[in-house]
């Protein structure tokens, strides 16, 4: 306790800086936890949260009885795993390539071009996608049909193409931002290491392999770990707006977030919606703890806690 007081006296400016974040977290994350109980009630708007009857695990039971729960968990997990792996590889590769460019003007131009998609709202992206995929006026169908003579594809009613479309859009959109973090790390690598490598006779490829990549290791681990924590979350806009909420695509575009949204806004079944949300949080929590434990076993300096 005494030590705590001493610490406070010494580091109070740091704690003060910490305070707004704590307040934000409390308001945004702790207060809403009050709503967890809705998952165990049959919510009735007129009676309010406290007046709604308890129904135990019935909401969860139904989620699991239909294939809904399986589909949304499968989609959320698989998409995120693909996003994490491809996203990291692409971002690291682009960062390395960018760092090898000598011309400063060119470097800045490329960086800006790659970053722009990240700044575009998903709703606008969905219309950009529509401009490509629209059955009657879309760019792809018009070129495919007119130039190559291939049969037009009814994109918004054909689920099999969508895993690829979503992955491509996500990569295109997220690349710029992910890359910046790696690029910044690369700039921070001690240049004497490269000089030493050159003295030892390393070529470009060897420099990347033995200096840059090891230098990026902890950044990659931390970012992947953070991404793992969000593996049960999904970008709502990507999975709801971009497929234009098209029914036949639901099997490949339904994630936990879109399910929660549909349950709340369209089916008015808030109980099941909350059950899905709680399920997402609990499994996400377990995943973060597990991932962190594994990382700590391998390399304790890289773990988050």
């Amino acid at each position: 306790m005494k030590k705590f007081v001493v610490k406070m006296q010494r580091y109070w400016p740091l704690y003060l800086m910490f305070l707004p974040g704590v307040v934000y977290l409390f308001i945004n994350s702790y207060i809403p936890m009050f709503g967890i109980q809705i998952a165990f009630r049959q919510y009735n708007a007129a009676k309010g949260v406290f007046g709604s009857p308890w129904i135990g695990l019935k909401n969860f039971e139904f989620l699991i009885r239909t294939k809904d729960a399986w589909v949304m968990v499968r989609n959320t997990l698989l998409y995120n795993i693909v996003f994490i792996i491809l996203g990291t590889v692409a971002a690291v590769a682009t960062a390395i390539i960018l760092s090898e460019i000598r011309n400063k003007k060119a470097k800045q131009t490329y960086q800006t071009i790659i970053l722009i998609p990240f700044l575009i709202s998903m709703v606008i992206v969905s219309y950009l996608a529509f401009a490509f995929l629209s059955t009657s006026n879309g760019f792809i169908n018009n070129t495919l049909v007119k130039v190559f003579g291939i049969k037009a594809i009814d994109w918004y009613n054909t689920p099999k193409h969508w895993p690829f479309i979503l992955v491509i859009i996500n990569l295109w959109k997220g690349l710029g931002y992910n890359m910046i973090l790696y690029y910044a790390t690369i700039l921070g690598i001690d240049s004497t290491l490269y000089e030493a490598a050159v003295v030892d006779g390393a070529n470009r490829w060897q420099k990347v392999l033995h200096v840059t990549l090891p230098g990026l290791k902890s950044t990659i681990i931390i970012l992947t770990l953070m991404a793992l924590g969000g593996i049960f979350r999904s970008d709502f806009g990507l999975f709801y707006q971009v497929p234009q909420n098209s029914g036949p695509l639901i099997n490949v575009t339904q994630t936990i977030d879109t399910y929660v949204y549909r349950g709340l806004m369209q089916n008015n079944n808030i109980g099941m919606s909350s059950a899905a949300g709680l399920y997402q949080s609990v499994v996400g929590f377990v995943l973060v703890i597990t991932a962190n434990t594994i990382v700590r076993k391998i390399d304790s300096d890289s773990s988050l806690f």
């Binding site: 809403p32 936890m33 924590g229 049960f232 949204y261 808030i270 709680l278 997402q280 929590f285």
Partner: peptide, 12 residues
């Protein structure tokens, strides 16, 4: 955890 709860239940 709470971050997850908050995000997943934004609507709620």
């Amino acid at each position: 955890l709470s971050g997850l709860v908050a995000c997943s239940k934004g609507g709620d």
